[in-house]
């Protein structure tokens, strides 16, 4: 991989094992300055291990990595001054108030809330009415906003967000992503992980990651456009029976439930949806609808 000066994060052949379990295996990628880069994958994919290595909290077994131009091992102190990290688990002080938490983190980095208020303003005004409330007594969405403020208060160049939206409802998730876009406009590079496939589309580029390995890196649009299988959206009155019958269709390649319908792909290039319709009619299905549909990141992920 080419190392260029405007790379904000570089990861080269990073591996880390815990006893016999390989958490991440020879990972390599680079994140451009000002980019929102997503690590998309389920629990156990190695996302948190990677975050801990990049934030200098954990040594890799092999490989090298740099953040904002600094080596994660030799120059760890410089990295700690210029990155913000929001771990997956809420790790602010539950017994301190909203304001006390923020002041504490500002002081640690030798700054004040006033000095960098501009950066956090949009987010902080939403929790400011509760600034005397203990952090432990905040709702999920508010905790997450406070954690983001604390990670931003020293004006970091690079922001690491480990599953910031897990367990958060769709409304708060949407707001959170709007905040990230605004931070990006201020020149902050963001590495964010999520198990929600629909959030992938909001990143500039994503890495699909599973069991410690990167399966694909590209922009969400390219990942979808390069997918070469035709997906059919199949519906019928009895969805569960439909699922079972599609799985028994002789030339089926994959059958996955997708909301109200089922996504079906076939092994045959000459596949004709009328044949499938007839097969389902013979199985006594009613209200059958078969339509070609656009793949989603989730379709691609499941086929890797």
């Amino acid at each position: 991989m080419k190392l260029t000066l405007n790379m904000s994060i570089t990861v080269q052949n990073i591996s880390k094992s815990y006893n016999k379990i390989k958490a991440v295996e020879t990972l390599s990628f680079a994140v451009n300055e000002g980019e929102i880069f997503g690590l998309i994958g389920p629990d156990g994919a190695g996302k948190t291990t990677l975050f801990r290595i990049l934030t200098t909290l954990l040594f890799a077994d092999e490989g090298t990595a740099s953040v904002a131009g600094f080596d994660v091992v030799k120059e760890y102190k410089s990295i700690r001054n210029c990155v913000g990290y929001m771990p997956g688990k809420f790790s602010l002080y539950q017994d301190l108030s909203v304001e006390e938490n923020l002041t504490f983190f500002a002081t640690l980095f030798g700054t004040t809330i006033e000095e960098n208020y501009d950066l956090i303003k949009d987010i902080y005004i939403q929790i400011e009415p509760f600034k005397t409330r203990r952090a432990g007594a905040l709702s999920g969405g508010m905790k997450q906003k406070l954690a983001l403020c604390c990670a931003l208060i020293h004006k970091p160049k690079v922001l690491f967000l480990d599953e910031p939206t897990t367990g958060v409802d769709p409304v708060s998730r949407k707001e959170f992503w709007q905040m990230l876009k605004r931070l990006q406009q201020k020149g902050i590079t963001i590495l964010v992980s999520t198990p929600y496939m629909d959030e992938a589309a909001l990143c500039d580029r994503i890495a699909l990651i599973q069991k410690g390995k990167i399966l694909k890196i590209d922009s969400p649009i390219n990942i979808i456009e390069k997918y070469d299988k035709t997906i059919y959206d199949v519906r019928a009155k009895n969805t569960y029976q439909l699922l079972l019958d599609l799985k028994n269709h002789p030339s089926q390649y994959s059958v996955y439930a997708f909301g109200e319908s089922i996504h079906y792909t076939d092994k045959e290039t000459e596949f004709d949806s009328d044949t499938l319709k007839k097969y389902l009619e013979d199985k006594k299905h009613t209200e059958i609808e078969i339509q070609m549909t656009k793949p989603t990141i989730e379709d691609v992920f499941m086929d890797l």
């Binding site: 389920p42 496939m197 569960y240 699922l243 439930a257």
Partner: peptide
């Protein structure tokens, strides 16, 4: 109660198939 948080998409679907089967 939020049975599938953080699970990969294939497992999530296998889980829902178990739910369907049980409802059946």
């Amino acid at each position: 109660d939020e049975p599938t948080g953080g699970v990969d998409p294939i497992t999530r679907r296998q889980f829902w198939e178990m739910i369907y089967a049980e409802a059946h």
